[in-house]
């Protein structure tokens, strides 16, 4: 279908984008890569009156090394993130999760910022961002603020980013030398996660000295499997011990029931995929 008519503006700076978002058009939407928004417009599930295209703002693009952190501009595409040596070296689990998003065409257009603000419970990038303890920088009329990933995802399709604000960048503390793996479970090629697990671990002399694990699509927002993280500490990075630690992955989650599976199936999956993800991360 063809979207409902809307006005369009493509500012060239964050400041101009913020002032466009402050205009008195009835329903204003930010347009990033458009890989979630344009399908929604085509199905007429949304009918904004003004689109503010942030795709022509150079300061929102690129990946930089800032000493103890890797900083990724919100408009950086999935293809750029998955391909980046900086991301692969210092935030491996994000690179691995990004490779599994959609298909090459979508990865050429879709952006990290768009995925995070869209906050689909089955989206693949919120979990690694949560696991990596990233910080998100949000710009609005009152200036800039920084929100830790743990406080960013409020509900299904709802984040700390307000209607008149934009996410400008994501700061990820370096996890250099950590093993990383994203275990995504789907039934067919190019599908959203039924359940997925982001795991990044530090192994010293065969035992796990630090572990971060987050779950995709086990609730309205991504969830840290803190029980698993604690149970892994000091344990051998081997089959049985990891299996035992992973058996608490689904505790405290509230997974959906849909045509891909019911909640109890997803709980079972979460345990199995957590074991696989941690073992693969430790071996990587």
């Amino acid at each position: 279908m063809i979207p409902v008519a809307f006005d369009y503006t493509a500012p060239s700076s964050v400041a101009d984008a913020i002032s466009a978002l402050g205009s008195d058009s009835e329903e204003i939407k930010v347009l990033a890569g458009g890989q979630s928004l344009i399908p929604v417009l085509r199905l007429r599930l949304a009918a904004p009156t003004l689109l503010v295209d942030i795709g022509r703002i150079p300061e929102l693009r690129g990946i930089t090394d800032e000493g103890d952190a890797v900083v990724i501009g919100a408009m950086t595409t999935h293809a750029e993130v998955a391909d980046s040596d900086l991301v692969k070296e210092h935030a491996g689990v994000l690179a691995k999760a990004t490779e599994t998003v959609a298909d090459p065409q979508v990865r050429h257009r879709g952006t990290l910022g768009g995925s995070l603000v869209h906050a689909d419970p089955a989206g693949d990038l919120p979990a690694p961002i949560l696991a990596l303890d990233a910080e998100l920088v949000i710009a609005g009329a009152d200036g800039e603020r920084t929100v830790p990933a743990a406080n960013f995802f409020h509900d299904m399709f709802a984040t700390a980013v307000g209607d008149r604000e934009i996410l400008t960048k994501v700061r990820i503390p370096k996890h250099t030398g950590w093993g990383a793996h994203y275990e995504k479970f789907t039934r067919v090629a190019q599908q959203w996660s039924i359940v997925a697990v982001a795991a990044t671990v530090k192994v010293d002399g065969g035992s796990i000295s630090a572990a971060k694990v987050a779950l995709t699509n086990m609730g309205a927002t991504p969830i840290r499997a803190t029980g698993v993280e604690q149970a892994l500490l000091g344990r051998a990075a081997a089959g049985d011990t990891v299996k035992q630690a992973a058996s608490s992955a689904a505790e405290g989650t509230n997974p959906p029931t849909d045509t891909n599976g019911d909640a109890s199936y997803r709980r079972h999956l979460a345990n199995v995929l957590t074991r696989r993800a941690v073992l693969a991360a430790a071996a990587s």
Binding site: Y8, A10, R109
Partner: peptide, 24 residues
């Protein structure tokens, strides 16, 4: 946006032309 039959190259990389606005 699933079928890919509309794929073209935009500045040399593939995109689904049904999921890009002409103004973009």
């Amino acid at each position: 946006s699933n079928c890919g039959s509309c794929t073209v190259h935009l500045d040399g990389t593939s995109v689904k032309s049904c999921t890009v606005l002409a103004v973009q």
